[in-house]
Design a protein around this nucleic acid. Structure first.
Length: 431
RNA sequence: GGAGAGAUGGCCGAGUCGGCUGAAGGCGCUCGCCUGCUAAGCGAGUGUAGGGUCAAAAGCUCUACCGAGGGUUCGAAUCCCUCUCUCUCCGCCA
C-alpha cells in the first residue's frame, strides 16, 4: 500500500495515477474519511488521557483510604463515551483500511502512460525466429503426436486447463526446473528455498493479491488457506514483520513452486495447450534490496531471467508495461515474451517487477541502516525465471523438426541423460 | 484425535490481593569515561505504531501495544470467554 502521508500530501498525483491506471476509485471521499477518522481519534484520545489521569487519582485516594465514589461516577460516564467513540472509530477505520488496500502502487517515472497492452514499448529483441521449411505446428500438436502431453485424460480426472505429462515430457519439465534453479543459484547468487505451496490470507494481503484479486485464487474450503498463485507470495513473506540489517541486504532468493490460478474471466482465451493452465510450474526470483538500488536490481533481475532463454537459444523480446497494463502492486514491470512459431507471435514467459516499498509496507518488511535507530521499508522485486510450462511450449515449437521430433537444447541434455532428440514418450535415456 | 504446559521488550526473565509497570533484574547493543592494546570496570542511553504541535526536521506532548480478538471494571500484563501458535506425553501416519 501507499504511505498514508504520501496520499494526503500528494492527492493530485495519486488521482492522476488512478486515471493513468484506469482505476475507478473515489479518492476524495477517502480523504474525507481520513479527516473524520482523525477528528474522532483526537477526541477519543483526549478522553483516554483524562481517564488515565483520573485513574491515578482514584488509586491515590484509595491508598489514603479516602472516598473516590464521585470521581468513579464521573469516570463511568467518560468510559461510556470512550466506548461509543471507539466503536464509531472502528467502523470508519475499517472502511478506511479497505480503501487504502485498494489503492494501487505509483508507477515509476519511466513507465509510459498507455491505454492497453498494445502501448507497451518493446525495449529489446533477442535472437531470430527460426526459419522452417514446413508449416510449424502448435505445441499441443507436437506434444500429442509424441505422446508426451495428455489433455484429455487430465480433463477427465480433474477438468479443463489441466495437463498430464508422460515420459520424457514429464522428465523435461523436471529438467527445466533443475536447470533454472542451478543456473540462478550457481551463476547469479540466489539462495534456493522451497516454501509451502499453501499460504494464508495475511501473506496474500502482504504481496497484494488480496483483498482485490480473490477471484483469481483457489481457496481451501473451511480454512484460511489458499493455493499459491506464485512463489512470490510465500517467498516475499519470508521476511514479513522482520527488521533486517543493512549488511544483510540485498537478499536474493529463488524458488520452484507450482502455481495455481483460477483464471476467472479468461474463459475464451488459450483454451488449447499448455499456455493457460490452472496449475503450472514456475521458478521464481525474489529480491529484498535497499531503496536506492532497486532499479539497478530490477535490470539485473531481468538479465538473470533472460539468461535462461539465451542459454536455451529461444528468441524473445522484452516489453515495459505501460500504466494500463501494470500490475496492482508494481511500480515498474518488464515482461519477457518468447517467440512461439506455432502461434506466430511473442508470448509472455516472465514478468519482472520492482514493487518499491509497496509490498514491504503491507507485509511490514523493514531494515535498519548502519548506526541508525530508525527503520525503513526495504524494496522488494520479483520475476519469473521462468514459467516452466511455457518454456516447454517454446522448446516444442521452436525446436520441432519436419519429422515431428524435437531437438533438445544442448544445455538441457545433461539433465536428460544426454538425449539429443525427442522422438517418442517412452524414449530410453542413452546412458 | 486424546491429555497437559506455555506465549511479556533484540534475547533471557520478574510481575504479589487488578491501581505511577512501557514494564524490575540480567544479557546484548550504542555513546562517553578509564586503560600501553585487549579484557574488565564506571557513567548515560537503548521498542513500535498513530495523533497533536512545527514551514520542515529535531524536540516536546498525547494515545495505543505484555500471542490475537472480545468481556468485566472508574482502572487489566494481571480476572473471565473465544481463537491462534509453541512445547511435552499418548494414539495415528509419509
Amino acid at each position: 500500500m501507499l504511505d498514508l502521508k504520501f496520499v494526503r500530501d500528494n492527492a493530485e498525483r495519486v488521482s492522476l495515477m488512478l486515471r493513468d491506471r484506469q482505476v475507478d476509485l473515489d479518492l476524495k471521499s477517502f480523504l474525507e474519511l481520513d479527516e473524520d477518522r482523525r477528528s474522532i481519534l483526537k477526541e477519543v484520545e483526549e478522553l483516554k488521557r483524562r481517564r488515565n489521569v483520573a485513574s491515578e487519582e482514584i488509586a491515590r485516594i484509595k491508598k489514603e483510604h479516602g472516598d473516590a465514589t464521585e470521581r468513579i461516577g464521573e469516570m463511568r460516564e467518560v468510559s461510556q463515551q470512550i466506548k461509543t467513540l471507539d466503536l464509531q472509530l472502528a467502523v470508519i477505520q475499517q472502511s478506511f483500511d479497505e480503501i487504502l488496500m485498494l489503492i494501487p502502487n505509483m508507477p515509476h517515472d519511466s513507465v509510459v502512460v498507455g491505454r492497453d497492452e498494445r502501448d507497451n514499448p518493446v525495449v529489446k529483441v533477442w535472437g531470430e525466429p527460426p526459419e522452417f521449411d514446413f508449416e510449424p505446428k502448435s505445441h499441443w500438436d507436437v506434444a500429442e503426436s509424441l505422446g508426451i502431453l495428455d489433455f484429455e485424460r487430465a480433463a477427465r480426472m480433474t477438468g479443463a486447463r489441466f495437463a498430464l505429462y508422460w515420459g520424457i515430457g514429464a522428465a523435461m519439465e523436471r529438467a527445466l526446473i533443475s536447470f533454472m534453479l542451478d543456473l540462478h543459484t550457481r551463476l547469479h547468487g540466489y539462495l534456493e528455498v522451497l516454501p509451502p505451496f499453501i499460504v494464508n490470507s495475511t501473506s496474500l494481503i502482504g504481496t497484494g493479491q488480496l483483498p482485490k484479486f480473490k477471484q483469481d485464487l483457489f481457496k481451501l474450503e473451511d480454512f484460511d488457506y489458499y493455493l499459491v498463485p506464485t512463489a512470490e507470495v510465500p517467498v516475499t513473506n519470508i521476511h514479513a514483520n522482520e527488521v533486517l540489517e543493512e549488511d544483510d541486504l540485498p537478499k536474493y532468493y529463488t524458488a520452484y513452486t507450482p502455481c495455481f490460478r483460477s483464471e476467472a474471466g479468461s474463459y475464451g482465451k488459450d483454451t488449447r495447450g499448455l499456455i493457460r493452465q490452472h496449475q503450472f510450474n514456475k521458478v521464481e526470483l525474489v529480491k529484498f534490496v535497499k531503496p536506492e538500488t532497486s532499479y539497478v536490481e530490477l535490470e539485473n533481475l531481468l538479465a538473470n531471467a533472460e539468461t535462461i532463454l539465451q542459454e536455451l537459444g529461444l528468441p524473445y523480446r522484452v516489453v515495459s508495461l505501460c500504466t494500463a497494463d501494470l500490475g496492482f502492486s508494481a511500480s515498474k514491470t518488464y515482461d519477457i515474451e518468447v517467440w512461439l512459431p506455432g502461434q506466430n507471435t511473442y508470448r509472455e514467459i516472465s514478468s519482472c517487477s520492482n514493487f518499491e516499498d509497496f509490498q514491504a509496507r503491507r507485509a511490514n518488511i523493514r531494515y535498519r541502516r548502519k548506526g541508525q535507530s530508525r527503520t525503513d521499508f526495504v524494496h522488494t522485486l520479483n520475476g519469473s525465471g521462468l514459467a516452466v510450462g511455457r518454456t516447454l511450449v517454446a522448446i516444442l515449437e521452436n525446436c520441432q523438426q519436419r519429422d515431428g521430433s524435437v531437438v533438445v537444447p544442448r544445455i538441457l541434455r545433461p539433465y536428460l541423460g544426454n538425449v539429443e532428440r525427442i522422438t517418442s514418450r517412452q524414449q530410453v535415456f542413452s546412458n
